[in-house]
Design a protein around this nucleic acid. Structure first.
Lengths: 254, 254
DNA sequence: TATAAACCTTGACGTAGCGTCAATGTAAAT
DNA sequence: ATTTACATTGACGCTACGTCAAGGTTTATA
């Protein structure tokens, strides 16, 4: 079956202008140009457009799409599988947003307090996800399937050495915290050392440090069961203790 | 808690440029400007930004967001509820896309045939959903929530007279359709009159008319059980009949 | 306390991805 | 044969920022 511009645009639910634009930028060329000068598209172009729309849906810019699909290594079925992965991830993000709005509604009705940070759960991730979309696939295409850690490292522009330091710091925080919690003194030397190490650890994640953000994160450690569980693995109450230590360290203790 | 531009941008996961741009276009003004000329944002602005991001996530353009949120009838909790509805709908669309990609993968591996039309399931709907986001809520208001009707009317900047005309047209469409469906001829005079009336009715909702959009909406009437039910109230099959009439009217019958 | 680094401002240019329209030729329907 | 619908190229305009320069202010560090 063959399609002219309008037919193809209707089929795909996009504008005729878009079809022509895609020809113009070389991302979707017609199969041929007929004697009248009309663009004629066929089955292969339909399939290609489908792929383009998946990439577009997942937020990939057109130049990247073009580069990916023009590579000799481009494998259509593999690409489709990757779209699926990304779509599933997008659905997870959407679930976060849905949970966020539900939480916001509930708390607005109750007139209770919601952490500012919580209000952007799902949105914030969008930035990270979009970056992963741009670069994560490139990494996967080059080296095959990797862990999220690998792509996150890329995103953060870390060198291998920096990453080792990052990991070492994390370990040291945990060990220092283990000793500090025994003192039961969040203002003590050990606790404050842990907080200082934590601050340095954050230096790898944040473009800039602020005491408020640090304090906010500490609060989140006790507010979010996932983080609480991470620290309470050392000993129940550690997350709370660490929060106090950080609040003291930042001078923002209430 | 107060935030300067960068702090707020980090909190929300968007750029500082975006924050400034939003101030510039008047969609998110700072709480105050400090003695150095710095923008200072507070709790109310954080909540407002959250709402903006929800609207943005759902594809609403900034001018529309501004208009909606500056309306005296704007109800924060109600808006959040609507975001939730839309996010759930978006998730459905995503499920369609996921199913589409899975079907595509399966059929590519089997080397079997997939209808061209099927390949765009989920994408096509995106256009329709976006139109619904802008205008379809008004349609939905007709069938359900009267309180939302009031705020939507304001949004559309309708006069009382215009609203009466809008309502009268709606009634006339239904009556014409009732008579037309008895003829069982979607190309007939009555059916085409109904389609023409529908076009005029859409003139109150849409900034611009296009045959494709009209046809798309007609398709939606049979695809979406809510709309189908509205027309099938006249007589079962009316929605399908009206779709055919509109497709003929717009010349986009397949 | 001085200095460097980080952050703020305004102003301005540029871009991706189209939407819209004009002018003109072609295909399909009447 | 005529009208309507669809095609083309060319070109301007728009939304929503991204980027950068120049210069002032705040924060961290030595």
């Amino acid at each position: 079956m063959e399609y002219t511009v309008q037919k193809l645009s209707q089929l795909a639910g996009i504008s005729a202008r878009t079809i022509r634009y895609y020809d113009e930028i070389g991302i979707l060329k017609p199969a041929r140009i007929n004697s009248s000068g009309y663009r004629i598209y066929g089955r292969a172009e339909v399939d290609r457009l489908q792929q383009i729309l998946f990439y577009r849906e997942l937020g990939v810019d057109l130049q990247s799409i073009k580069k990916i699909m023009s590579s000799p290594a481009f494998d259509e079925v593999k690409a489709l599988s990757e779209h699926r992965e990304q779509l599933l991830a997008r659905r997870k993000q959407l679930d976060l947003l849905i949970r966020n709005v539900e939480k916001t509604i509930a708390q607005r009705k109750k007139g209770s307090i919601m952490m500012d940070k919580e209000k952007f759960e799902g949105f914030k991730r969008k930035l990270i996800e979009e970056n992963e979309q741009k670069y994560g696939q490139e990494i996967r295409a080059k080296y095959g399937e990797k862990t999220v850690e690998e792509s996150n490292r890329k995103f953060m522009s870390m060198t291998v050495e920096q990453h080792a330091e990052f990991t070492r710091l994390e370990k040291e925080i945990k060990e220092t915290l283990r000793a500090a919690v025994q003192t039961n003194d969040p203002a003590g030397e050990l606790a404050q050392k842990a907080a200082e190490l934590h601050r340095r650890w954050l230096g790898f994640c944040w473009n800039s440090y602020s005491k408020e953000a640090h304090a906010g994160l500490a609060q989140m450690y006790v507010d979010d069961p996932r983080f609480t569980a991470y620290y309470d693995e050392i000993q129940p109450g550690t997350a709370e203790f660490f929060k106090d230590a950080i609040l003291i360290y930042t001078g923002l203790r209430e």
